[in-house]
Structures are given as C-alpha cells and as structure tokens.
Write a protein that binds this DNA or RNA. Sequence first.
DNA 1: CGGGCTTTTGAGCCAAATCAAAAATAGTGG
DNA 2: CCACTATTTTTGATTTGGCTCAAAAGCCCG
Lengths: 270, 270
Amino acid sequence: MGHVRQHAVAALLRRLRAAADLCENDLEVLSSAVREVRRVRPRTVLIEEGDRPEHVHVVLDGFACRYKSLPDGNRQILAWLLPGEFCDLHVAILGNMDHTVATLSASTIGLIPQDQVEMIIDTSPALSRALWWAALVQEAVIREWLVGMGRRDAESRAAHLFCELHARLDAIGLVRDGAVDFPLTQGELADTLGLSAVHANRVVQGLRQQRLIAWKDRKIRFERLDALQDLAQFDPNYLHLKRRAVAPQRGQGQSSREAASMVDARVRSL
Amino acid sequence: MGHVRQHAVAALLRRLRAAADLCENDLEVLSSAVREVRRVRPRTVLIEEGDRPEHVHVVLDGFACRYKSLPDGNRQILAWLLPGEFCDLHVAILGNMDHTVATLSASTIGLIPQDQVEMIIDTSPALSRALWWAALVQEAVIREWLVGMGRRDAESRAAHLFCELHARLDAIGLVRDGAVDFPLTQGELADTLGLSAVHANRVVQGLRQQRLIAWKDRKIRFERLDALQDLAQFDPNYLHLKRRAVAPQRGQGQSSREAASMVDARVRSL
DNA sequence: CGGGCTTTTGAGCCAAATCAAAAATAGTGG
DNA sequence: CCACTATTTTTGATTTGGCTCAAAAGCCCG
C-alpha cells in the first residue's frame, strides 16, 4: 500500500522539492501525511462553497480547478490546479470555503487530514515553508490572471495562459516532446479566460493559424514557444520557480520520466 | 515614543483582533514588532518589482495599492491596501517581489523587521494564525476581483467594489455616518476596475444618477447601501469577517472613534 | 493668475458578446 | 459494432459595451 501511495504522491514531492530544500525525512513525513488516495472522475466537485472539509485535498494526477458561479449561470474559473497543487490549504485558517473546487479531467486526489497539516506546521519548519510557498505561488498566479483580465486582449491573454501552463507543467516534468496533456473543453477555457465560448474558439483558431499551438486529442503541442511568449509578453518571474524540478534534459523527451522514477526510487528506499 | 506608536498601530491591532482571539500579550508583541513608523506622501512607491526588502510594510493609516505595469504603459491595480493590511508578508517566503506596492493617499506605514516576523511565527501560534488569516483574506479578495473582471460588466463591477470597500472599512470602524474616505482619482479607480478612465467616469456618473453613491471631496457617501448591494449582487462571505471589530453602535457616528481609543487605552495600560 | 491635473462630454470605432445553426465528436445503450 | 444522442466545435450575422481620440470645463495650488 505504501508503495502505491508513494508512486501517486510523486508529483507532490517533485513540486515541493523544487521550491524548498527538503530532506529525506521531510519527504517521508509529507508522503505519509497523505492518508488516502482517491481516483475521481472528470467534472466532479471536490469541495463546495460553504464546506468546511476535514482534510486538505491535493491533486496528484490530472487537472482540477477553482471556480465561482454567478446567479446568471455564468461562471469564472479562478485557478487551474495541476499535479502537486493543494486545493484547500486555506480552509484550516479561514473556516469555510468561499468557492468551489472540482476536477476537470479524471484525477488522482490525495487527502491529508487536517491534524496532519497542523502537525507538519508545528514540527517541520522546512515543510511549513514549502506549504507557504505553494500557497503564495497560487496567489501570484491569480494576480497575473487579474492583470490579463484587466489589461490584455483575448488573444494575448490566451497566449499568456498557455505559456504559463507550459512553464508550470515543465517545472514538474510534464512536458513531453514540447507537448502537454490538456483535458479542458473550449467552454472551460472560455470560463478561465473570461470569454464567451464562441470567442474562445475564434481565439484558439487564431493561435493555431499562426502555428503557435497545435491542440488536438486533448493535447497541446507548443510549436514555437518563443513566438508564443513573445506574443504574450510572458515573463515567468511571477511563478517563482526557484529551480527546475528535474535534471536538465540529456536524451530526448525521456528525461522527465527518468527524473520521476528517480524521485520514486529515493522515496522507496527509505 | 511608545505612546505615539501605539496610537499609530491601533488600526492593525483592531483588524487582527477582529480575525483571531489575541491575548493582551499578543497585541503587545505585535505592537512592539513595529519598529518604525513612517509618514509617506501620496503616490510613493514602497516596494518595487524585484525588491527583496528587509522589513515587512503594514499600512497603519491611508490607502496603498499593489499594481503591475505593462510595457504598453497600462497598469492594473491588484489590491487596495487599507489600514491594518500587510503589503509584503509574502516576500519572506517567495524571495522577491513580483509587483509594486505604492501609496495612493498620504499614509502612515509601519515597518516590521523580517526577524521580528520570524520571531512571531516561531513563538506565537495565535499571532501566526492571524497573519495567515490576513494573507488568505487578501487572496480571497483578489479571487472575487477576478470574478468581477471576467464575468461582471463595468457597472456591477464598480458597484461590487464599492460594496467591498464599505464592508472592509466598516470592519475596522472607518465608516462614519455612512461615508468613507476615498482618496483615489477616477484614473486610479479605472486602473483598479480594468477600465479606461473615460468609461470609469461614465460608470461613476451612472451610480451617482441612481443615487447609489455620492462621491465628492475625496469622500464617498453610501446613500442606499442595500440597493447598491443589490445591483452588485454583493455577498460579503468572501471577506471572512468573522465578527465586527468594534462594539455595535449605540450613539451616532462616534462609536468607532470610541472603539479605537478603547484599543489604545488597553494597549497603553500594559 | 496661470499651468497642470482631473473630470466631463461627444463622436466614431472595435473587440467581444449574443443569437442561430450547422458540422464534427464523443458517449451510450442495444 | 452501430445507431442515436448529447456535447463540442465551428461558422456567420448582428449587436453592444467599452475603447480611443479630441476637446472643453472644472480644480487645485503655488
């Protein structure tokens, strides 16, 4: 059972290791704080507005999101939650949720009991710091989204979002041959960008015609990342990716797989 | 000297007391962590993108804001920082600033050395929790702003922002006779709402004509708060104001002044 | 009293929304 | 595996909220 969990938890460890210096013991503590791992189908609500869940959810595999729905039926997606990201670390402090968290794709979700989080905070300064870091990066991302909503037009906002997606997935070794999994519909992309589904479609077509992205079969390939970053005026500084999570690529497209199994091996060896 | 500082620091204490149960000792610790109090002129940059300041800034009086500027000269304001709010609690963890903080009005800014913050985190669980709370509320506010940018039109976005302003200032006793100080220009309001200055002006005029707000002499009076909240579909839940900071009003418009001096007296008596 | 901000007004334009419907895909049950 | 639905994606036509440009009017302060 430990074996399975450790494999599932690899994304989380990889992400936090990229943020802070964590020792073997920290990794083991974190890993064993994940008391349950759940397979969840796509488009499933994990935590709803007003809830006060008794454990913290962390995405181990797949895509989830935060969103708020308005009375008129519109909704706004507030964050994409990628592998290794916490869904509701804040509930412990704030009391109740002010928004909803749901999966976008089929996902693996880890559950960390509230008391384990408090234990971590009380006993491991390095891990607490890593959790803080994770929360603050999410805040930085949402600030950048706000800039985009307020001051970028639809095309450069979309381009910027795709650049961000690439950077965030690259940092956890989930870019393979310049392509990433992208399980969202255009409607969901529109809810993220604050656009209508129709206009989101036209924007995506524009990016495709400029050969900046190729989106097919729930995968996005970044054909000319530099040109896309140019269009978006993308500066990754706000992501606070202190260093790459995986070793620099030697071979072709296999290195992140190697790095992942390296982490696994390290955990297993404890 | 202690006397002056304690008076200046009242807003901070009031705000955090509203969030968490803090004992007399916590209040004194926090109060004395503010090692320096500075008077700052309006429109002064406090911390710039890329900085790694050695102390944490807290607004004690006046209005400040976070913003990012784009290459095209446009800027987006990301947060209003009201009395009692921290400007850069996150820098300690994230390393460097990814945006700028500047005053909007003439302000009083408190400086808390980095090591004092760390001392607080290490020694007072109640105060740490209060700091966490403060950071997370700022995050909740920015999420709500994102919803507005993505899914509300200019008028209801503006109405919502004014409702929020009222609620946040009311929680720290800064609403007097249904009116609040509002030192921003319409241009700055536009940068907050993601509008052009011209359109922000038209929106404000609309709210005035509906007699929802009266804005004159750097003050906003909320004539029909309920109607404004209606228009904005305002639900204050996201502000996580656990309870009111000041006692319920008995007299007329004097209670917040009373409450403020009460806090001062309490601190002084230590 | 004059020079710089703000605020206000008007006119024209453009990005993105809405409405409507067809075409393409993905599921689902038999 | 196929037929039948439901969902997504795409296209076209039209409308609109908010922008830009331009200029006047009001303020603030030295």
